[in-house]
């Protein structure tokens, strides 16, 4: 018997919990279910799952509360499940330490991709491992972190200091969404918190340099109202 990855599903709707656990079991994961926040918190501390799928709308408490309590002592990857139109809640969850989010309704392939990315990210964090030999490639895009060079289709792309910082930040979190405030914090420091405009302008410039058509980006996708994401391998 192999040691299966354990996923805790925190979801109060039986049908959805059933669907998720069916998909996960079929893909070789072990699942535990919690239907409310209190149960989730006790299961997290007793079972130490490898990943938590957390629905934000719970009957007994705010899902964000479960997130906050868990993050007090653990870095377990947490994937937040929320409905469309709750962008503010997503941003809040991400800023509280959620690794990623998935919007209802979702298909099984999308769910599996997100779970894989979150677990990979979790392992990477644990091993303290960065990208192998300081290079990142995706399609035609190549980023060399040591030489600080970005190339598209083999051609050098001239990026400014901040543009380069943004690109590397996003490359290091492939598959994960990064909120505006997280990027602003990492690139400009904590005093630039509210100036999203500057980030948007930089992003527009980056896209004009690395994307073939900035209106149909391949490398850096916008999650409207939340942040940016480099899509996982497709």
């Amino acid at each position: 018997m192999t040691n299966k990855t354990t996923v805790l599903i925190v979801e109060d709707e039986d049908a959805i919990a059933h669907f998720i656990s069916t998909v996960l079991t079929a893909n070789g994961y072990r699942t535990i279910n919690a239907t409310n926040g209190a149960e989730a918190i006790s299961l997290i501390s007793s079972h130490c799952p490898d990943l938590i799928l957390l629905d934000l709308g719970l009957p007994d408490m705010d899902g964000l509360e479960v997130l906050r309590k868990t993050r007090e002592w653990s870095g377990i990857p947490i994937l937040v499940v929320s409905a469309r139109g709750e962008e503010q809640q997503k941003v809040e969850a991400l800023d509280l330490g959620a690794d990623d989010y998935i919007t209802k309704p979702f298909g099984s392939s999308e769910l599996m991709a997100r779970i894989r990315a979150a677990i990979r990210h979790g392992i990477k964090m644990e091993m303290g491992e960065d990208l192998p030999d300081g290079k990142f490639t995706r399609g035609d895009l190549a980023v060399d972190f040591k030489k600080r060079i970005v190339t598209v289709d083999g051609k050098d792309v001239h990026l400014t200091q901040n543009e380069f910082k943004i690109v590397t930040l996003i490359c290091k979190h492939v598959g994960q969404v990064l909120t505006y405030s997280y990027i602003l914090n990492q690139v400009w420091g904590q005093f630039a918190q509210n100036d999203r405009q500057i980030l948007r302008v930089n992003m527009a410039n980056i896209r004009r340099k690395i994307e073939k058509n900035p209106a149909e980006p391949k490398y850096i996708l916008t999650e409207v109202g939340v942040g940016y994401r480099m899509p996982d391998e497709d």
């Binding site: 999203r196 405009q197 948007r200 992003m203 527009a204 896209r207 900035p214 209106a215 149909e216 980006p217 996708l221 916008t222 999650e223 409207v224």
Partner: peptide, 15 residues
């Protein structure tokens, strides 16, 4: 209402 980059909205819609 917030200022949004048009290209981002268009891109996300198409995605």
């Amino acid at each position: 209402k917030q200022p949004e980059a048009v290209e981002e909205i268009a891109a996300e819609s198409v995605t």
